[in-house]
Amino acid sequence: MNPVNYLYLACLLFTIGATGVLIRRNAIVVFMCIELMLNACNLAFVAFSRMHGNLDGQIFAFFTMVVAAAEVVVGLAIIVSLFRSRHSASVDDASLMKL
């Protein structure tokens, strides 16, 4: 097997995540799809790191993880406060931004 297959897998997972963001309307599931896309990117970074034979790709993946953690914290806080004011986690309801 050629290690380039890891890149194909990353593409596939990224596509599935992007489709999920378009299809789903529950804000939490949309968020999970974003996480899936970030993970797919990480896999591509790690595979490229192996391809080039240096660790820079792994450093990028590491920073992506840190940013993803920060993003999840803030995003879930937004979802919780949205749910408090609207009693719904649907992204359709969030289109009414005025109170």
Binding site: L13, T19, L36
Partner: peptide
């Protein structure tokens, strides 16, 4: 891939 599909 199955896990990702199930997620969405």
């Amino acid at each position: 891939v199955i896990g990702a599909l199930c997620t969405i």
